[in-house]
């Protein structure tokens, strides 16, 4: 059952990654990418990392990919240019792919030959009866790696503030909504009753 699920998820990940690259339409590409993320989360579930799986879906599928889709939908895309870029970058991409594949093969061969690896690959996932994923991760992150964890948080915060500072520019001559004024406005400030005499206008 697990083997079946693994091959199902893995083949969908590979297929949708391929479609993501070869799709003509960038929006389709993003959607294939989302399918790949989703099935990668399925793979995480299979090895018992349910917390990572949930985070993958929440962060990547639920937020990052939505923004990505948002941007791609708004773009006016020249397909011919994209095709040309693909051919231009193909050699570099192939070289990178080869290096990566070689690393996988070498690492796999090394770990296979080393002792006890057979057992390690046979037992996937957290030990039964141990602390749950969230407890184990939380304990590690907030005790052993607390400084690294906080440092990562600080870096993200700085990046966020930096992005806001870079894009936030004040423009003159723009009328913006002032919510406080709008909320504080009362009928008496905006209207008044008059009883004009016949033939005389109303002063506004």
């Amino acid at each position: 059952m697990q083997i079946f699920a693994f091959y199902l998820f893995a083949s969908i990940v590979i297929a949708s990654a391929a479609f993501c690259i070869f799709a003509r339409n960038p929006v389709h590409s993003v959607l294939w990418l989302i399918l790949a993320f989703f099935n990668a989360a399925g793979l995480m579930l299979l090895v018992g990392a349910e917390f990572i799986a949930a985070l993958l879906v929440i962060v990547y599928v639920g937020a990052v990919a939505v923004l990505f889709l948002f941007v791609v939908m708004m773009l006016d895309i020249d397909f011919a240019e994209l095709r040309a870029g693909f051919m231009k970058n193909l050699p570099l991409g192939l070289v990178l792919a080869l290096i990566l594949a070689a690393e996988f093969v070498i690492f796999g061969a090394l770990s296979w030959s080393s002792e006890g690896m057979g057992e390690a690959t046979a037992v996937v996932g957290p030990p039964a009866g141990g602390p749950s994923n969230i407890e184990a991760l939380g304990t590690l992150l907030y005790t052993k790696y607390v400084f690294l964890f906080e440092a990562a948080g600080m870096i993200l915060l700085v990046a966020m503030v930096g992005a806001i500072v870079l894009t936030n520019r004040k423009r003159g001559g723009v009328r913006i909504q002032n919510i406080r004024d709008q909320v504080n406005r009362r009928p008496e400030d905006a209207t008044h009753n008059t009883q004009p005499e016949v033939g005389k206008g109303v002063e506004l």
């Binding site: 917390f51 949930a54 879906v57 929440i58 599928v61 639920g62 937020a63």
Partner: peptide, 9 residues
């Protein structure tokens, strides 16, 4: 978390 993940879809 599962509900949060699914509702974000």
């Amino acid at each position: 978390l599962y509900i949060l993940a699914i509702s974000s879809l």
